[in-house]
Simulated assay, not measured.
Amino acid sequence: MLSTTSAQQCPYAPTEDVGAAEARASRAESNGGKPTLSFDKNTPYVDYAGIDTLLSLQNPRTKEPAESAFIIGTQVMELVFALIQQRWEQARDALEVDDVPGAVAWLRSACNAQDVLNSTWGLFSDMTPTQFNRFRDSFGEASGFQSYSYRKLEFLLGHKSAAMIRPHKAMSGVVTDLTDLLERPSLYDAALRLLHRRGLPVPDTSAERDWTEDYEPSAEVERAWVEVYADDRPGNELYLLAEALVDVAERVTRWRQLHLAAVKRTMGGKPGSGGSNGLNWLARNAEKDVFPELWSLRSTI
């Protein structure tokens, strides 16, 4: 059951509009149970989801068929990035008000979105280096490294760097959003602050620090999580939180590994379009643990 706090924060009405429900029932009756087939303008489905706009955004610059898969896959990822960001922020905010059940629910929901995100790499799984080379020059210096939606996720995970805002300096709204995430506690910071409030041995320097700095692992924080894991009863909400965070972290690592594999398959060790050394940079990033103490403690308990 969700806590009272979570229920009070829920912005969604628990019941549907009575008039709209009656209209739907009347329409179904008049249609004899069949779908409506006649509309005077765009179908409501097209208008509601902006389908015309969505499908107009695929504009390949070459005649290579694989470029369409590359563009669509990239756009799907960007959409799911935004969904994951929303759910991680909801989880972070729930933790800041001691609503652990609410936070766990949002993390579980985020994991479902992360699974969809990871499966998107399948759209690139059969792309050969020859196909990629036919359209690679068409996107110039464009690189996933420049995705501000992905950068928001990294900041939410605690991987902070003010320098990573610089590529977006011409986009004032993006700079504002990234700066806000840079200066606020990350999802993991919020979890540690919760443990600190609950009396676990998270040091003051972890509960209150310069949020703009990249998170650094702490032996004291590891000991706090070890205490959480010492009580693995189903009713221990902190234990459930820890495992939900691990589920999130595992999926982030999997996404990085899939990214590495896709690049290795399509372009090997060539320099990246965004100016990095490509494969080597991705390999180093894939090796970094997300929420590090939740992994290191497994060697000690």
Rank of each mutant, 00 (worst) to 15 (best):
A219D: 13
N59L: 15
L194G: 05
A49P: 00
A224H: 00
M127C: 09
D231W: 06
R223I: 10
M1Q: 09
G102I: 02
L238Q: 01
P129D: 01
F155G: 02
W211V: 06
D247E: 13
G140K: 14
Q9P: 08
N112I: 15
L37D: 04
A142E: 14
N285G: 12
Y150W: 10
T62F: 04
N285M: 13
A28I: 15
T212H: 01
Q8D: 09
T36K: 11
N31T: 09
G158K: 01
E287M: 11
L194R: 07
I84M: 07
N118S: 03
S273T: 14
R197K: 07
D99S: 01
F155S: 04
H196M: 06
R223N: 11
G235K: 01
E154D: 05
T4P: 10
K41W: 09
E213A: 14
D231Q: 04
A21P: 00
W106G: 10
H168R: 02
A113G: 09
R27K: 11
A49I: 13
D17A: 08
N118A: 07
T128C: 07
Q58R: 03
L241K: 01
N133H: 13
G275P: 08
V252K: 07
E67C: 05
W106E: 15
R284S: 14
D17M: 00
D115I: 08
V263G: 00
Y150H: 09
V97H: 07
L55K: 09
S125C: 09
L195G: 02
N59V: 13
K288R: 12
L182Q: 09
R108D: 15
D93V: 07
